[in-house]
Simulated assay, not measured.
Amino acid sequence: MKSIKVKSLPLGDVIKNIASELNTVFTEHCEEYVLKIPDEYGKGEIRGINFEGGLGILLYDCQFLEDLEIQFVVNEVHPLKFLYCIEGELLHRFENDTVEHNIKQFQEAIVASEKHNGHILRFKKNVKSKVNSLEISRNTFRNKISCNLKSVDKKLNDLFSDTLAKKTFYHEGFYSLQLSNIFDEMKNFKEEDFIRKLYLEGKAYEMLTKQILLYHDDLNDLNKTVLLRQSEIRQIKSAVAIIEDEIAKLDKIDIIASRVGLNVNKMQEGFQYLFSKTVNAYIQDYRFKKMQELLTNSDLSISEIGDLVGLSSKSYISKVFKDKTGTTPNQFRKDYKESMTKLRKKNL
């Protein structure tokens, strides 16, 4: 394993320090510092930028040929770090501790070291890792914020107020879709220089806002959390599969949510995010789509089709079709067959 020591702040100097340790060069554009990982160590890049008010962002997008440990050991109070693992994994421990925290894809961690103790980040070999780190110099940040933090949870309030780093702090969870969207927007932003710096500064404050809201949501019981996490998208997709596979005899929405490990509010938010509709609307639309498919590709009766899509009332099926198409199921089938016959004759 290769270890490098970073004994500098702010983030521009951090990038310079890492570049020196890796025997490579860095570039600077409008106070954003970038180093490319040398081929002998792996591939990728690390970016760093500081803003007025105590905020800064480090962006790691790299893959190393051997385990790489970055030891942040500057002899002063270290920034408060909000770590987001977008891809791969990251291992973190405090300089004065042997306990290692494994931060995996879609996870986030809030870390603050005690006194002048630093942070040790370890990247595993041959693992492509993308990590965003929002860094806050609490002393500078507190001087900028004139209002108090009474609306913030007491532990978080104490954390921001601990400008002398009297206590260690560690909290981990899964980052929200709101934060995921911010990361995507940052990655896709193409402007450079002053416009990019201004944009990233805005995103830094937006990240902090969404993170505080996420932390408050993390304090709720699991069945009462509201914000959808990026990791929960897979569970939403599992709910979709249940709906489509079991449409004939579908469980109630709360039971489906329970089966995939979500509460109803979370599942509703997920459907709104992925499909811009409620769960009920998705079910109704899928039933209609399935009915159309069976009407055009089978000779099943309307009642039989109703059984296959979970609708036992023939009159209700007719109402649904009338509302959607302005015609009855039988007329829809007839019109479809006639149009297909005409098309075949035309192509002869």
Score class of each variant (00 low, 15 high):
residue 190 K to E: 15
residue 113 S to M: 00
residue 261 G to Y: 03
residue 238 S to E: 14
residue 339 S to I: 08
residue 128 K to Y: 13
residue 245 D to A: 08
residue 143 N to T: 07
residue 203 K to A: 10
residue 292 Q to E: 15
residue 346 K to L: 15
residue 216 H to I: 03
residue 138 R to D: 01
residue 278 T to C: 03
residue 243 I to C: 06
residue 339 S to L: 13
residue 316 Y to P: 02
residue 334 K to G: 02
residue 48 G to R: 04
residue 98 T to Q: 13
residue 170 Y to V: 04
residue 85 C to S: 12
residue 117 N to D: 06
residue 160 F to A: 10
residue 80 L to A: 09
residue 109 A to I: 01
residue 64 F to G: 01
residue 124 K to Y: 00
residue 227 L to H: 10
residue 185 E to S: 12
residue 274 L to M: 08
residue 20 S to P: 04
residue 239 A to T: 03
residue 257 A to S: 12
residue 45 E to F: 10
residue 161 S to G: 10
residue 141 F to L: 07
residue 50 N to S: 14
residue 12 G to F: 02
residue 46 I to N: 01
residue 115 K to L: 03
residue 279 V to F: 05
residue 167 K to L: 09
residue 205 Y to T: 03
residue 7 K to F: 04
residue 21 E to L: 02
residue 266 K to Y: 05
residue 193 D to A: 12
residue 255 I to T: 11
residue 113 S to Q: 02
residue 217 D to C: 01
residue 145 I to N: 09
residue 63 Q to A: 12
residue 18 I to R: 06
residue 316 Y to K: 13
residue 268 Q to S: 07
residue 128 K to M: 02
residue 179 L to V: 14
residue 55 L to Q: 15
residue 78 H to I: 06
residue 202 G to W: 08
residue 325 T to L: 15
residue 117 N to E: 06
residue 105 Q to Y: 00
residue 116 H to T: 12
residue 172 E to S: 13
residue 299 D to V: 09
residue 13 D to C: 03
residue 31 E to P: 01
residue 152 V to S: 04
residue 225 T to I: 09
residue 179 L to E: 15
residue 245 D to R: 07
residue 110 I to Q: 03
residue 124 K to P: 06
residue 146 S to C: 06
residue 208 L to A: 08
residue 271 F to W: 06
residue 205 Y to V: 01
residue 179 L to P: 04
residue 102 N to C: 03
residue 57 I to W: 00
residue 45 E to G: 05
residue 146 S to M: 14
residue 193 D to S: 14
residue 21 E to F: 00
residue 122 R to F: 00
residue 81 K to T: 09
residue 80 L to V: 06
residue 189 F to H: 13
residue 167 K to F: 08
residue 331 Q to V: 14
residue 328 T to S: 15
residue 183 F to N: 15
residue 288 F to A: 06
residue 250 L to I: 03
residue 348 L to F: 14
residue 69 E to A: 12
residue 340 M to R: 09
residue 177 L to G: 09
residue 339 S to A: 14
residue 324 K to C: 05
residue 94 F to T: 07
residue 267 M to N: 02
residue 205 Y to L: 03
residue 169 F to C: 08
residue 208 L to T: 11
residue 256 I to Y: 06
residue 49 I to V: 12
residue 136 I to W: 03
residue 186 M to K: 02
residue 17 N to I: 08
residue 33 Y to S: 00
residue 253 I to Y: 05
residue 343 L to K: 04
residue 195 I to V: 09
residue 131 V to P: 00
residue 172 E to I: 05
residue 38 P to I: 05
residue 185 E to Y: 09
residue 304 E to H: 11
residue 69 E to W: 00
residue 317 I to Y: 04
residue 348 L to N: 14
residue 214 L to A: 11
residue 14 V to N: 04
residue 159 L to D: 01
residue 162 D to L: 12
residue 164 L to C: 05
residue 153 D to N: 12
residue 94 F to W: 05
residue 213 L to V: 07
residue 60 Y to D: 03
residue 180 S to H: 13
residue 180 S to V: 01
